[in-house]
Computed example of a mutant assay.
Amino acid sequence: MRDHDLPALERRSRGKSRFDDDEPQFLKRGRPTEPLADPDSVPDPDTGERWSSWDDAVHGPQPHPDWLVTELAAKDTELGVLKTGKEADVHLVRRAVPGSDRSCLLAVKRYRDPEHRLFHRDAGYLEGRRVRRSRENRAMAGRTAFGRQMIAGQWAAAEFDALARLWEISAGYDRIAVPYPVQLRGTELMLEFVGDAESGEAAPRLAQLRPGAAELRDLWAQLVEALRVLARAGYAHGDLSPYNLLVHRGRLVVIDLPQVVDVVANPQGPEFLARDVRVVGTWFVARGLPAEQVDPGTLTGELLREAGIR
């Protein structure tokens, strides 16, 4: 039987009427709708404030520093951009409890969308980093869209984990050489702000300074101790230079550790470590520190022994 042999009403039932508003609507496969916005993450249009994200983030090591605001009633206010980088931008945020004197400044590192990152030479750094699911490992190796997102998440998680471990290891020393890792939420990393808490001015980079002889010796001694702490944790910074070392009130602080290298698991680990030492050693010698006090080869060997390789 053909369609023109059927009654008119039955023929219409085979097709969709333009007035069938009650029919269910199905989503097309592979095209999920946008998730509803979290009302707590939407800033107030007048003040720019939003509720603190402390409640649903991974927290830094305990005990938390006294200066850190952990109250759930706190609000975060964006104050501007501190710096832009190859893989992330760093913003300045004030976290404060309304109606009280409880507040602190935080450096908030937000990793860019994988399509907009400027750092693409990540293969060497990622050696030794594995996830449990083979699908995710294949995606990362193939640099698929999903794999690039996984890598972006690994940068943030690797930096947070390294900072937390280094903070705990160096807690027994007089000077802690890394900023306190406040919290991790997705690809957003909140850190201790290193600088003037009143003015919001960030501490200068080592590359910006022209220290005198005594200060130069002290900064080198601090750097060597910081490198020892890294080595004891099994790490090399991986991209160490005078541009990712801050100096605040005489304290040397190591920053920018997303590409931190496991010197044991990564076959290129010793090479990354040697390069770190060579780069910073060259800067100190150029500023007047006697070359015999630096000796990159000797220091690299000592650090490898600290890491348990030699």
Rank of each mutant, 00 (worst) to 15 (best):
D218W: 11
A207K: 05
V263D: 07
A207I: 08
L223A: 10
Y235V: 00
L227R: 12
P242D: 05
L257S: 03
A207P: 09
V263W: 05
Q259K: 10
Y243T: 11
N244E: 00
R217D: 14
P258E: 01
Q222R: 14
D218G: 08
R249P: 04
V261L: 02
V264H: 14
L252S: 06
R228K: 13
L219S: 04
L230I: 03
A207T: 09
R210A: 14
D218Y: 08
A214E: 15
A265D: 12
G238W: 09
L209E: 06
A231C: 08
Y243D: 14
L209K: 08
D218L: 14
A214S: 05
A233T: 06
P258T: 00
Q208F: 04
L209Y: 07
A236H: 02
P211C: 08
D262P: 00
Y243M: 11
L209F: 00
A214G: 13
G212F: 10
V254D: 03
P242W: 09
V254C: 08
P258N: 02
R232Y: 15
E215Q: 14
P258S: 01
V224E: 09
Y235F: 09
H248T: 03
L216R: 08
G238K: 01
G250K: 03
G212P: 10
L257M: 10
A214W: 11
Q259G: 09
L230V: 12
D256Y: 01
V263E: 03
S241M: 03
L227Y: 09
L230F: 13
R232P: 10
N244V: 00
R249M: 06
V264N: 15
H237A: 14
Q259A: 14
A213K: 15
V264T: 11
V264D: 12
A265S: 13
L223D: 07
G238V: 02
A221G: 11
L252M: 03
V264Q: 15
H248W: 15
E215H: 05
A221M: 13
L257E: 02
L216I: 06
L219A: 07
V263H: 04
